[in-house]
């Protein structure tokens, strides 16, 4: 039997989490329930679905704070996210089916930390920061340091994810996003790419480039970011492609091949740095 708790507020949730390190946190269930038949039933479950303290989108001066309980439907439809954080809105649109988007949450995606989590490369490219909390207090972790391995993160056993704070790119920064799945909708990613490229005219001042589904966790590709700095668009694409070649070691699995993932990752990254 699984003990089920639906906290009334964050405080109750944090206390439950502190007392029951072995309980599972349910943030939407779109991942947990799919595999429920193949896993042992959890001892207990803390259901955070629709917990008011976690359901918010706050547009601040230089960033947008997105509560962990925000669903992908809400992310995709939010005018400020669509206007200012395009890769995140685009990623939200391509997560599962409409039903999954209505149920799955940002906190769930970040907490599950699957290498094919669709929002994660966007959070990397946008240089998001995560806010987590426990009865001990709140802290912030840069998202680029969040993932520690295959489905493992820096979240402590007594912590809950509160929000993502996503800086709004300035006017000189162009952002890109592309998901390559097994089909055009409702698919698991084979390769995902996201980028935020700051330009001076057509010269790359700096860039953040992130890929998903090509390693055991979503990753920033610093080799590419270094290679394109100071290059003109177009030339930067070639440099990005060359730099990526040695930087990733994708794998073969039931959905695709290492060769394909490598080649498509190169094409996507080169495309991000193409003219226009």
């Amino acid at each position: 039997m699984t003990t089920y708790l639906r906290p009334r507020d964050l405080d109750e949730g944090l206390h439950a989490r502190a007392e029951h390190a072995d309980w599972t946190v349910l943030a939407g269930g779109t991942d947990l329930l799919v595999n429920a038949n193949h896993r042992a039933a959890p001892v207990g479950m803390i259901d955070l679905w629709r917990l008011a303290d976690l359901c918010f989108v706050r547009v601040e001066k230089t960033s947008v704070a997105i509560g962990a309980g925000t669903t992908w439907t809400e992310v995709e439809r939010h005018p400020a996210i669509r206007a200012k954080l395009a890769p995140l809105a685009l990623a939200a649109r391509e997560i599962g089916a409409l039903q999954i988007q209505a149920r799955g949450t940002l906190g769930g995606n970040v907490g599950t930390s699957s290498p094919v989590g669709d929002s994660l490369p966007a959070l990397l490219a946008l240089d998001a920061e995560l806010e987590v909390a426990s009865v001990r207090g709140h802290r912030r972790v840069p998202y680029r340091e969040w993932c520690t391995g295959y489905r493992t993160t820096h979240l402590a056993a007594d912590e809950l994810i509160i929000a993502a704070h996503v800086p709004v790119p300035d006017a000189t920064t162009r952002t890109s996003w592309r998901k390559v799945g097994t089909r055009r909708a409702q698919s698991i990613s084979k390769v995902m790419g996201a980028a935020a490229i700051t330009l001076d005219g057509d010269v790359v001042v700096s860039a953040r480039v992130a890929l998903g589904a090509i390693a055991n966790r979503p990753i920033r590709i610093t080799a590419v970011e270094d290679a394109v700095r100071g290059q003109r668009l177009g030339v930067a694409g070639d440099a990005a492609r060359a730099a990526l070649r040695g930087a990733i070691q994708p794998i073969d699995d039931v959905r695709s091949t290492a060769t394909y993932r490598r080649e498509v990752a190169e094409n996507l990254v080169a495309r991000f740095f193409s003219v226009s």
């Binding site: 799919v34 097994t182 089909r183 055009r184 909708a185 409702q186 698919s187 698991i188 039931v254 959905r255």
Partner: peptide, 27 residues
């Protein structure tokens, strides 16, 4: 273009709707 049943040592390696895919309307 996209359907397949992948056998590995005689076992269906993609025995779920996540990986044994069929077209959606978008396809």
């Amino acid at each position: 273009v996209l359907e397949n049943v992948v056998y590995k040592d005689g076992k269906v390696a993609n025995a779920n709707m996540t990986n044994c895919i069929v077209p959606t309307f978008a396809d």
